[in-house]
């Protein structure tokens, strides 16, 4: 395995009295794509949200264990959540662009940091749009409402928006589940390009997608991490029976 980015040790997470994640231990490599697969309700999205502390926003969530990013525990008291989320960007299942112009969506994160210089904003917007392979589609209509874009374009704009704050890690929660096959293909291609610069963790329902885009795959079931290995190994020669049953479509 290459250089490690995220290391999780013995993580347990509870929604009130209900345990949602059990003893998760995983090492996620830098500048690779890691996919989380598993049936609905297996805890893969919850775990993804652990990595940028989005679960903090939900009441009655408790967790113990360690989550290290670059060797530093992000649940340490000294950690500023706001700074953490700037380093760990997130793309959600459904496009959640703001009802503002395309440009304002792109520079939202920069404006939060107090950047007002029109040139810097413009440069970043262009750069991130090019990274997200959407620049040609939006460059002439930056002032139009973002919600006038098509579903696939909106989701790629969401990715561009997340990249604009220059994160090190990009978390993607089923980014293509609401899209048509062509838009999905574009997103997958995009993910492939992005891993040269970013560490990507993607949750997906679609096993073919996991097989196509990821370098490592983790299989979750009932809040436990059943198996984690190179994607090629998980899909061709899994060690554990449950994983084999799931990836071959025998259950789930």
């Amino acid at each position: 395995m290459k250089e490690l980015k995220i290391t999780v040790k013995d993580l347990n997470l509870y929604y009130g009295a209900k345990q949602a994640l059990k003893n998760i231990t995983i090492n996620i490599p830098s500048k690779q794509v890691t996919a989380f697969i598993g049936p609905s309700g297996c805890g893969k999205s919850t775990f993804l949200r652990v990595l940028n502390r989005m679960n903090d926003l939900i009441d009655h969530v408790n967790l113990d264990g360690e989550v290290l990013i670059d060797g530093i525990n992000i649940y340490d008291k000294s950690i500023d959540v706001v700074n953490l989320r700037k380093r760990v960007g997130m793309v959600f299942q459904k496009s959640n662009l703001f009802p503002k112009s395309i440009f304002e969506n792109l520079v939202f994160g920069l404006r939060l940091n107090g950047i007002r210089d029109k040139n810097i904003l413009m440069e970043t917007a262009e750069l991130t749009c090019k990274q997200a392979a959407i620049w040609d589609e939006v460059k002439d209509r930056l002032d139009e409402p973002a919600l006038s874009l098509s579903g696939g374009q909106q989701q790629r704009l969401c990715i561009a928006r997340a990249l604009a704050i220059k994160p090190e890690i990009v978390l993607m929660d089923e980014p293509a589940s609401a899209l048509d096959p062509i838009s999905t293909a574009k997103i997958e291609e995009l993910i492939h390009h992005l891993k040269t610069k970013y560490t990507i963790v993607i949750v997906t329902h679609n096993m073919q997608q996991a097989a196509r885009v990821s370098d490592y795959t983790a299989f979750f079931y009932m809040g436990e991490l059943i198996e984690y290995d190179k994607t090629s190994k998980i899909f061709t020669n899994p060690t554990i029976k449950q994983t084999e049953d799931y990836v071959t479509g025998r259950f789930g």
């Binding site: 926003l57 706001v82 459904k94 959640n96 662009l97 994160g109």
Partner: peptide, 23 residues
């Protein structure tokens, strides 16, 4: 105001007040 818009804002490192004010 949809929760997803708040999530988007928090996900980009906005504080609570920034989310309220801007989104």
């Amino acid at each position: 105001v949809p929760k997803s818009h708040r999530d988007a804002s928090y996900g980009m490192g906005a504080s609570k007040w920034q989310t309220i004010k801007n989104v």
